[in-house]
Simulated scan of single mutants.
Amino acid sequence: MKKIAFIGAGSMAEAIISGIVKANIFNKENVIVTNKNNKERMERLEKKYQIQSIADKERVIEGTDIIILATKPYDLEAAVESIRPYIQPEQVIISVIAGISTDYISKLVGKNAPVIRAMPNTSASIGFSATAIAAGNHATESHVKEAEALFATIGTTAIVKEDEMHIVTGISGSGPAYIYFLVEAMEKAAVESGLDPSTAKALITQTVLGAGEMLKSSGESAEVLRKKITSPAGTTQAGIEALQRNDFQHAVMECVKSAHDRSIELGKSK
């Protein structure tokens, strides 16, 4: 069975590890995590998921089939430098780092190893990630299919052009946080109106799940679904008008644009 190594042990790495461990697509002893120097974090992941945490970078890379780069953007150079002597051309490198191009990673690696860029989200931990995948230097169709099969075990996938990854970052990459922020506001309004917090959370959570399932299974657009439940002069109409008065749609569009622009900035800084 294949071996996969995570360079970086942050929240995204953990989300993917959690997802692939639950999907049982790797033997746990073939899932390895390492980071710069946070031994406590590595040991916590090892204990929680029964995987391996190894500080010695040569041992991490030796015999590994898939290398997942999951560091912060500003830690990437040092991380690649620490493993570069041990990377072999047949090893597939998958980056889940926002804003960083495959060309730049290839330059850091300095070898002809195939590089693929992916943008999952933290819903990977429960098998509901939406992951975009883009091929980089020396990545063949076979390598892309391998990456697609990996991320398909933790949610849905889409193959995109690399220059589309910035907007992907702004929607599906960061998107869960926007939904959580909306839910925070709805919960606060419910509690301020006298509803029990646990009841508010349960109702809002199911509402979000139901809306997502309707978008997925009904075949209808968000606009059509919205209009179907917005009766003239009704309660939903009153709520929508309040959102319109506060320029809700523009705020969301600016939110996505800001994340998109920040992704571009991160790439330009390299």
Rank of each mutant, 00 (worst) to 15 (best):
V256S: 03
K3R: 14
S193W: 12
T169G: 02
A242H: 12
S269Q: 13
I87K: 09
T71P: 05
L209T: 09
F6S: 02
K57L: 06
I159W: 10
K22A: 12
I264R: 12
I167W: 12
G210T: 06
K270I: 04
A70T: 01
E220Q: 13
K145T: 13
G212K: 06
T205G: 11
P85V: 02
M119G: 01
K22F: 02
H143L: 12
M214E: 06
S193M: 15
A200L: 06
A70E: 05
K227Q: 14
I87W: 03
K72W: 07
I16K: 04
K188A: 13
P176K: 01
D65Y: 07
L182K: 01
M1T: 09
H143K: 15
F151I: 08
A242Y: 10
S174R: 07
T34N: 09
K227P: 09
T230K: 09
V33I: 13
G194P: 01
A23P: 01
I133H: 02
E164N: 12
A251P: 09
Q50T: 15
I83G: 00
K2W: 13
E187N: 12
V160T: 00
R84I: 10
Y104A: 03
K47Y: 10
E265N: 11
I61F: 03
K268S: 12
L182H: 05
S106C: 08
E29F: 11
E187W: 06
E77Q: 13
D65N: 13
S129E: 04
E46G: 08
K188P: 07
E29P: 10
I87S: 05
L195I: 06
K270A: 11
E254N: 13
T205C: 09
P197Q: 01
H250T: 15
G239Q: 08
A238M: 10
D56F: 03
V60T: 04
A238G: 05
S258I: 08
E192I: 07
L69T: 00
S218D: 05
I105M: 01
I16N: 02
E254F: 06
K3M: 07
I229A: 10
A118C: 09
K216N: 12
L215I: 09
K57V: 06
N30L: 07
I83R: 01
V256A: 08
A134P: 02
C255G: 13
L203G: 04
I61A: 00
K227C: 10
A185E: 03
A211K: 08
A185C: 13
S11Y: 11
K28I: 00
Q50C: 15
S106L: 07
I126R: 06
V256Q: 03
E187F: 07
S218R: 01
Q88H: 14
F6H: 04
S193N: 14
A185Y: 00
E223P: 08
V92Y: 10
I229H: 10
M42G: 14
G173R: 02
F128N: 15
D75A: 15
G219Q: 00
G8I: 03
E46A: 15
I20S: 02
P89M: 09
D247T: 10
R117C: 05
G136I: 05
V160W: 00
E141V: 11
L76S: 03
S174N: 09
A113K: 04
I83S: 00
K28A: 05
I167V: 13
R59Y: 12
T205Y: 11
A78M: 10
S101M: 02
Y178H: 02
